[in-house]
Write a protein that binds this DNA or RNA. Structure first.
Lengths: 229, 229
DNA sequence: GACATAATCTAATAAACGTTAGAATATTAG
DNA sequence: CTAATATTCTAACGTTTATTAGATTATGTC
């Protein structure tokens, strides 16, 4: 019969396992990426810019902690978050880190707070303006991620396609660009390009995970489209 | 000028620092304890049953991540959570762990779910019943923790005092006992004792941190009483 | 069946971490 | 000032973890 102390140690030890899992920057990046849509090992490795072997090892840890689940389809193993609560937890952990760590604030300022990329727009206002057609909301992520879930009224233009599809964007409306969240830079690049071409463009720092945590609605296309391998 | 990838790596790296901090069971226990009230190094070491030296080392890590702040008063250094958000984060991390880790569920069941300690009572109902005087809510933590914040209508009877103060508890009312939270065992012990003596007693798993996260009110005595050294 | 691709497993190394003991610092009490 | 208490710092040990390379398994295609 274990003592009180032994039981308590075991309980805290188990929670610490979650801590150990999110103690690795690459695993956090995986949670961020998997919050967008399910992905194969190779895709995750490419997006996070690490080797497939290392990605596989990290995924093993995430799976052992049941934060990530998998399904197999032919040659490919698709990984997804085991629960929406995992995505919410990532958002909360990032929020705490942003608030507590001066170093992170400094790093974020370096690339987010360029003077004109400001976000004077409230989330609820954005939703309303988009519904009324006053602004164009553009989702810059790969199409598979858009299909798996996106902001209401958003239009999918993957960053690689932006230049080609410029002509289809009306010049008389403001454009709000978003991507995977505050640590993603696709929206920044898009805003820079759009401004160069004379559009009124600004970034929204949120991604779908932040939007969901804020209690706002997310739209998804019928069946979740598998990510291109 | 750092590349996009370098900046992104740095951002995830910073969040992983929070993960590293909560990757240790003793540090988590410290967050749980400091969520009750500020405490000295020695007090924390005693409560968590580790050496003062080790406690000091863990506190250094918590301080470096700015999750814990200190004030010095004479010989003693009092440690406290740097922000209520830290306590909320601990509650969220524990909730995710409880939900995702089968091992934790098993360990919790071992000591929480003894058949009669069930908690069929909803938090809001408890508040209402306590206001109406239908039940007695007893806080079993040390008095300093009670003073630093407690459930409304709760009465402080530290576990060590319970036997002595039994006579002052009415036998015709149900007693609800709570302590530091789901990982704390003081309320369990109290319920066992009370039932042996013929009281109707049950446990509430919440502590003040869980109560606060649920958006319910917490009362505190005027100035936060310093913990006894 | 042979081959290419996707993913995992095993083993090995270097870095990071928890823990302990001993020395050092700061503050109060006499 | 000296003694006692509270806390931190330094150094050292053993363990765990991230990462890489090489071998292995599973699936689909020719």
């Amino acid at each position: 019969m274990p003592s009180n102390r032994e039981i308590r140690n075991a309980l805290f030890e188990q929670v610490a396992r979650i801590g150990k899992v999110i103690a690795s920057p690459k695993r956090l990046e995986f949670l961020d990426l998997l919050g967008q849509s399910e992905k194969t090992v190779e895709r995750l490795a490419r997006d996070a810019e690490i080797s497939v072997k290392l990605a596989s090892a990290h995924l093993k840890v995430l799976k052992a902690a049941r934060l990530v689940a998998t399904r197999k389809d032919g040659k490919y193993v698709y990984h997804r978050l085991a629960d929406p609560a995992v995505s919410a937890f990532w958002v909360h952990a990032r929020a705490l880190a942003e608030e507590r760590l001066v170093e992170l604030q400094a790093a974020l300022r370096e690339f987010v707070t360029e003077p004109e990329h400001l976000r004077p727009i409230r989330r609820e206002d954005l939703l309303e303006l988009a519904r009324q057609g006053e602004i164009i909301v553009v989702d810059l992520r790969p199409q598979a991620e858009f299909h798996s879930g996106h902001l209401p009224c958003a239009r999918s233009i993957p960053l690689a396609e932006l230049e080609r599809q410029l002509a289809s964007l009306p010049r008389d409306k403001a454009i709000v660009a978003y991507c995977r969240g505050p640590f993603c830079m696709m929206a920044n690049k898009a805003v820079t390009l759009l401004r160069q071409r004379g559009y009124r463009a600004q970034r929204l720092e949120d991604g779908v995970a932040e939007w969901r945590v804020a209690g706002l609605p997310i739209e998804a296309e019928g069946a979740p489209a598998p990510a291109a391998p």
